[in-house]
Design a protein around this nucleic acid. Structure first.
Lengths: 250, 250
DNA sequence: GCGCCCGGTTGATTTAAATCAACAATTCCG
DNA sequence: CGGAATTGTTGATTTAAATCAACCGGGCGC
């Protein structure tokens, strides 16, 4: 189906229990920077490898908040229902990224999360962390950093939506995916989009047709090669020059 | 200059040292829900009453992160510089609201913060919290909640920017200010805007002229009465009906 | 007290992107 | 395997909001 590479193929095959310290996502995920003892305790409460098929829901709006989730493989989109029955896509999440942070305050998910392809997640019971002793401070400090990063990301998106054209928004997305794949050890210039044109349009407040036209235009201009979901970025520097630093979505 | 009411007038006059437990913003600010011992420790590290005149900067983009700030009186806007030299306004902050959360991760402010009128803030040295013992867990838990709330707020703004017209965006702002003033004990229907039309336009990705026209139109329609910065909301229910639940900015 | 400047308003015109419409290519599914 | 449904593409037209332009009025300095 999707040809998205899976960072965790090897560890997934080797067994269900892969400790955080042995996970290929260690550097990108919650435990980054945590020491051995903290990791061991963290491993005790994290539930691993909840698997989702394409289209399956991790949680839905209104669900009670139980876990923060870390994407382990695949990709997951989050969305908010808006009036008129439509959905607004609020984010695309790759391995190592955390989901459900917006539900900590109200203890209820306002967003939903759907797998864009076969994916797996780890479940972090934020409330149970308090049972553990020393680990909590370090993990919470790490949580603060991750949420701070999310807030910065949301601000970049705000600038993009307020000040930038449809063209620049799409460039920003392609660049963001490129950087994120690269950091995960995959090609920065060739990958499959796991989201539909409609998802991209929704995420950026554009019409599906506009996104489609932009993909065509980028191709005409020699910026990219695109066939359906497969994308090859042919001119990364020019793509990057279209997107200012404060609008980087990485 | 601005006729914005000041929640903290009384306590400000009574002296420089007002403990969190005696602050009128207690219920709206960081310490909400914290117990006496935690509060006492918190009071030891919080610096109070840094005063800013209109137009003064609390921090600028690039400044090293030292404090998280809580607005104590007045109002403060945050902004990001974007290419072409312009600024994008990223938020308006009223008493009890926290500033600088986006800098926790990088330890550098990406945004700047300017007083929209004479304002004062408390300074919370996030890093020094670790010197304190038991307080840290509870305060950090509270920080997680506040940041979660911010992320939810950012998502509401995303929906507004992606899916709603200029008209609905302005309605959302007026409604948000109304609710926030109300919670602080002020009139929900009559207040002064501390931000300029340009600030509002920037915040929502609109032109100054559009915002101006909308104020006029709202007045024609009997929704509001507006003279320069003074606003009276004449039909709160109709205003509210223009803004869906997932777009509430409160 | 007068005029200047800035913030705000109002009008005319342009434009980027939405909408409407038709169609092509894939994937889904019996 | 074949037809329906979904997803994506391309073209014509409309539209909300930007831009360009002129002007107003209050507050401030001189």
């Amino acid at each position: 189906m999707s040809q998205l590479p899976h960072a965790t193929n090897v560890s997934e095959l080797s067994g269900l229990k892969v400790a955080c310290k042995d996970c290929s996502l260690f550097q990108l995920c919650l435990p980054v920077g945590l020491g051995g003892p903290d990791l061991a305790l963290l491993d005790r409460v994290i539930k691993r490898r909840h698997v989702l098929k394409r289209g399956e829901y991790l949680f839905r709006p209104g669900d009670p908040f139980v876990f923060v989730y870390a994407v382990r493989s695949g990709s997951i989109k989050t969305y908010t229902p808006i009036r008129d029955g439509a959905d607004q896509v609020t984010g695309f999440h790759l391995p190592g990224e955390l989901l459900g942070l917006d539900a900590i305050n109200t203890e209820t998910h306002q967003c939903g999360a759907v797998a864009l392809e076969t994916s797996s997640v780890c479940e972090l019971p934020l409330n149970r962390l308090e049972e553990l002793g020393s680990v909590i401070t370090n993990v919470q400090r790490q949580m603060l950093r991750i949420m701070s990063k999310q807030i910065l990301h949301d601000q970049a998106l705000q600038v993009l939506l307020c000040k930038r054209s449809a063209e620049e928004r799409l460039a920003a997305l392609l660049l963001s995916l490129s950087n994120r794949y690269k950091r995960r050890g995959f090609s920065a210039t060739e990958f499959d989009l796991s989201m539909s044109r409609q998802d991209i349009a929704s995420y950026f407040g554009l019409a599906e047709e506009t996104v489609s036209r932009l993909f065509s235009r980028f191709q005409e201009q020699g910026l990219i090669e695109v066939t359906r979901k497969h994308v090859r970025l042919r001119d990364l520097p020019r793509l990057a020059s279209m997107v200012g630093a404060p609008e980087r979505l990485d």
